[in-house]
């Protein structure tokens, strides 16, 4: 070990930042645990209950299946209608949000802001508000899904719009096309496939969402969770859960395949 190596050897950087981050994290977790009454003891004491619950859930009561088929169809219907309405509304909103199509900053910035605000509200909250407005039934659920789909599809679409090739647009301008013609011939062909893919994606999410909207009275199969759990008929609840899982997985699979074909 020579002394001249000692001289050029760099000093270890301070680890203060790491300790500080760790301390913040620990405090955060600790305060959170206190605030939510979470503890391992609570979990352990709840464990036997959980096992009982699981035991009562199996075997599922298959005969209950007939009773919930209609509700499941309503769920899919809600998702379909909600997604479609949302998709239709998303077209003008996306065009207004895209800075390369709506050049005016005074227009696309406020529209985007509104879009972002809409996207902060979870669909179940929207549904419970719409239930308060329109009363119980699938209609508030459909509206909630419409608003949610609008937010999601419009955001993804305007992001796709902003990455389109400007060439065809310039070509359309040079042949003397007006604004609408430019959009129809220069923009839509470029984002059509993406748009369809986003709609399918929104549909996948909406089927899952629609399955629980019934919890706040907004229609669909979710209503039956409260019915069965309220009467402690856990084997029926299990039937609902399995049925929903099957439907969601089938729709996901079909939609994913379709989306792969589109892009």
């Amino acid at each position: 070990m020579s002394t001249n190596t000692e001289k050029i050897r760099p000093k270890a950087p301070r680890k203060l930042k790491h300790y500080f981050t760790a301390a913040i994290l620990i405090i955060l977790l600790w305060r959170s645990a206190v605030l939510t009454d979470s503890s391992l003891g609570e979990l352990l004491s709840g464990l036997p209950n959980m096992l009982d619950l699981l035991k009562e859930m199996f075997p599922p009561k298959w005969s209950y299946f007939e009773k919930i088929v209609d509700a499941m169809l309503e769920t899919i219907r809600m998702a379909l209608v909600g997604t479609t309405l949302g998709a239709i509304l998303a077209v003008p909103v996306a065009l207004l949000s895209a800075s390369n199509i709506t050049v005016s900053r005074w227009l696309h910035h406020p529209v985007r802001l509104l879009l972002n605000l809409i996207r902060t509200i979870p669909d179940l909250l929207l549904a419970s508000i719409f239930v308060a407005i329109f009363g119980l039934g699938p209609l508030p659920g459909i509206f909630a899904l419409t608003v949610f789909s609008l937010g999601l599809i419009a955001k993804l679409t305007y992001e796709a719009l902003e990455t389109i090739d400007q060439g065809p647009l310039e070509a359309m301008t040079s042949v003397g096309a007006n604004k609408i013609q430019r959009i129809v011939f220069g923009v839509i062909p470029q984002v059509q496939a993406h748009f369809m893919s986003y709609v399918l994606y929104a549909f996948e999410i909406n089927v899952r969402a629609a399955a629980v909207l019934g919890l706040v009275g907004a229609g669909g199969i979710g209503h039956y969770y409260e019915v069965t759990l309220g009467f402690l008929e856990y084997n029926k609840t299990c039937t609902i859960i399995l049925f929903t899982l099957a439907v969601v997985l089938i729709i996901d699979y079909a939609s994913t395949k379709l989306r792969e074909k589109l892009l």
Partner: peptide
Amino acid sequence: LDRVNIVEKAY
């Protein structure tokens, strides 16, 4: 690191 002349890059 010193043998391969790169000790100053240790961190």
